[in-house]
Design a protein around this nucleic acid. Structure first.
Lengths: 220, 220
DNA sequence: GTGAAACATGAACCACTATTCAACTAGGGT
DNA sequence: ACCCTAGTTGAATAGTGGTTCATGTTTCAC
């Protein structure tokens, strides 16, 4: 189901990022069209398998079955089980942000942006539960990838908070702490109202959360 | 290091709880003093091992080495690796709440309570990083235990929010969503400023977070 | 003191699966 | 057409580590 990992050559948005999560080591780039198809198939199969079974219960054998390739082919493209997992995390981290960002940017003001962002995130999570699980589990399988994911988001978020402060939209305060706090809110709301239980609409949840971020719990 | 799991017979606070996390199945109760010592040793060793290596990398063999007992003895007390893990999660969940609760109750008002709770939580996390990791990883190893942990906290929290609303201390709104949002804040702040980086004081972090909860980001 | 139940021991078992490899096939450049 | 490289195959390997079990020792109620 996932679209990406940029197997082919679409121009990819430049990420300043940390040390380098890129195509460094782990996955070998295919040189023919056939190779690209196979890599794509393995990647998609891996996402399904990891999402359904979790990292440790997942099997290379089963990934290859899902992908319709022989076990050995896996190692043409990845040097280990962990390598494919890392590749998925980096890829999904990007997808998630690319999905949510435009919703926030399109909003007229800060509070509307928060609301739109949370709603978009919860909506996204509902359609990509496997992805949610994979990123979460990376905390235990590839901690550096997990950290990179959240640190990047937090930095971007803290930066935009600082700008909002400059524009007089929000009060002063430690923006990094706030960024992590709000990120935590999002993640937990995504888990509770996106993955575990879909009975509430993303918008309803986002409304409550955005008001909390905007004005806190204080009575008027 | 962990104190508990109530191996001996201290009267344990009655938890209405969910289905029944208790001494149901998994761990067999020792009938002699020697047995209780051994169980205690295995439990403590397991906490260390799981905390250091994570569930899957952890080994029964290594747990038993740490505990100073033979491998076979493990199965006198637990029917599987997963069983001991579950026992630890339930135990630590209790410990964590028991540590934080009094700090909140001792506070003069709602906002001070939030601040004290967050500070206590971050402080606690710093001294019990293994515990933090174990509870987190339970999401993938024993999802029901993980859910129980957070559902119980959220319910208690939502309840106290409802009371605060009754007392005119906070505004109206969906208390369950708010509870999950604030819980997520806490967890992420605990991870970032408790586990990953201790350069900020728990009080400083709590101050920022409590203000966020109290009055949001809105400029005055 | 005695005996039965509780507990301890650790080598052996066994199932499982990530990874390797040597033989084979397809593809595209010339 | 041809050849060389990229890619494919799946059975064999190899290491791991949770679990069992038959045997021995300790505890404690009576």
């Amino acid at each position: 189901m996932p679209k990406s990992l940029n197997v082919a050559g679409k121009p990819q948005p430049p990420y300043p990022a940390l040390p380098a999560a890129g195509a460094s080591s782990g996955s070998k780039v295919p040189r023919t069209a056939r190779g690209q198809r196979t890599l794509r198939a393995i990647l998609d199969a891996a996402a399904e398998e990891f999402g359904a079974a979790g990292y440790y219960e997942a099997g290379i054998t089963r990934i290859c079955q899902r992908a319709g390739v022989a076990t050995g082919s896996f190692y043409t493209y990845f040097e280990s089980k962990e390598a494919v997992f890392r590749a998925l995390v980096a890829d999904m981290s990007r997808q998630m942000r690319e999905h949510v960002a435009p919703h926030i940017l399109a909003a007229p003001d800060r509070l509307a942006g928060e609301r739109a962002g949370i709603a978009a995130f919860i909506g996204f999570v509902r359609h990509h539960k496997a992805m949610y699980r994979i990123i979460d589990e990376s905390a235990f399988v590839a901690e550096d990838a997990y950290r990179r994911h959240y640190v990047e988001i937090a930095e971007g978020y803290a930066h935009s908070l600082t700008q909002a402060f400059g524009g007089g939209e929000i009060s002063d305060g430690d923006m990094m702490v706030r960024a992590w706090a709000i990120m935590g809110m999002n993640v937990f709301l995504g888990l509770r109202f996106g993955v575990w239980d879909e009975s509430m609409s993303p918008d309803a949840v986002a409304e409550v959360a955005a008001r909390l971020i905007g004005e806190g719990l204080r009575p008027r």
